[in-house]
């Protein structure tokens, strides 16, 4: 048994196997991007589509009502790949001139890589920019964090400042590859492959969600709706309060750490000030300092994160952020305790 989709091709309705549809859609996408710089590209595409509709009509009958992937393969081999289709340039000279500035324009840009992300894709993007395995970049950031948390601060700044690579062209730019049709085609194909492997999980998930939604709908009534809206409003207000409190605490902590003696912030947090008395200045105190900062700052980040979640979308997936926060927190405690013990022993 196979799932089919219906598709409107040139005004005719076809039942197509899902995999066949995927393939045809991919093919038409390639043809479209191939003719995208041609002003009559749309016309050519619709001519080709109507030819496909014609050929598909020949392939189906009352005993075979569904278009299969074999049909699509035959049609594609009959029509040819987009690269074979291009009408010759009226003047070959101009054609080459058109190509060259495009290839020269190749420049790398720093993006966040959504295909290679643990948290936000900052490290993936930097890795792509310098052509290094992102894991090394991640290790570098963690090591930098041991130096007065500069890693975390740099990371957050990059997260805010560096844009995410959304389109295929941007992803190519990120890797420093030429933005031309064959490359876009290539990376599109790679993406499609990834999509295919995920499609089973996805459809399963969608099915479950749909079922759940239906149950929800059956159970819902106006009272529940009102109650839900009220709860949501309370959640948002609570979220805003959490975020604001978290941000205030953050500022206080940072200032008390940078300048431990400054009034009035030192009233809020005397710990770093006291720490200076216990531990002799030097590399150990720097490490203890960082450990302590992590231990205190991370719960605050968690608070802001929780608040943000309450404001925007409670049901969204958390990803790996909470786990990373907890790990960093534990790391901070261990580093702090070890550094303090070590310095006491040294004294």
């Amino acid at each position: 048994m196979k799932k089919t989709v219906t598709a409107n091709i040139s005004g005719i309705v076809f039942h197509i196997d899902e995999d066949a549809y995927e393939k045809l859609n991919n093919y038409l996408g390639n043809v479209r991007s191939h003719f995208s710089d041609d002003e009559s590209g749309n016309e050519i595409l619709s001519d080709i589509e109507s030819r496909i509709a014609e050929m598909l009509q020949d392939k189906i009958s009352s005993s075979k009502q569904v278009v299969t992937i074999q049909d699509i393969d035959v049609i594609i081999s009959q029509l040819g790949q987009p690269g074979q289709m291009k009408d010759e340039d009226p003047d070959p000279g101009t054609g080459q001139q058109k190509e060259s500035p495009k290839t020269e324009k190749t420049s790398k840009r720093l993006y966040r890589d959504p295909d290679n992300q643990m948290l936000s894709g900052v490290c993936g993007g930097i890795g792509a920019y310098f052509n290094v395995d992102p894991t090394w970049i991640r290790i570098a950031f963690i090591l930098l964090t041991l130096l007065y948390s500069s890693g975390i601060i740099a990371y957050i700044i990059l997260w805010i400042v560096v844009p995410k690579a959304r389109t295929t062209a941007e992803k190519l730019e990120m890797r420093g590859e030429k933005v031309n049709i064959s490359n876009i085609e290539k990376s599109f194909k790679e993406e499609m492959e990834g999509v295919k492997t995920n499609i089973d999980n996805l459809s399963k998930e969608a099915g479950e969600k749909f079922k759940k939604k239906r149950n929800d709908e059956e159970a819902s009534n106006t009272l529940a709706n009102i109650l839900g809206a009220l709860l949501k409003a309370i959640g948002i207000i609570l979220g805003i309060a959490l975020v604001m409190a978290g941000l205030f605490m953050m500022v206080t902590i940072i200032i008390s750490f940078i300048a431990p003696g400054v009034e009035p912030f030192s009233y809020f947090l005397r710990v770093p000030y006291l720490l200076q008395d216990i531990i002799q200045p030097g590399w150990l105190s720097a490490i203890a300092f960082t450990g302590l900062l992590l231990t205190i700052v991370i719960p605050v980040i968690g608070l802001i994160y929780l608040g943000a979640k309450l404001i925007f979308d409670i049901n969204s997936k958390s990803g790996s952020l909470p786990i990373i926060l907890v790990l960093l927190w534990v790391l901070g405690i261990i580093v702090f305790v070890l550094a303090v013990i070590k310095s006491v022993v040294l004294i």
């Binding site: 016309e43 001519d47 009959q78 040819g80 790949q81 074979q84 009408d87």
Partner: peptide, 16 residues
Amino acid sequence: LVVEGTIYPLLTRLKN
């Protein structure tokens, strides 16, 4: 004609 796709850009250009 080997691949049919060739014909469409050509027809469109002749028409244009």
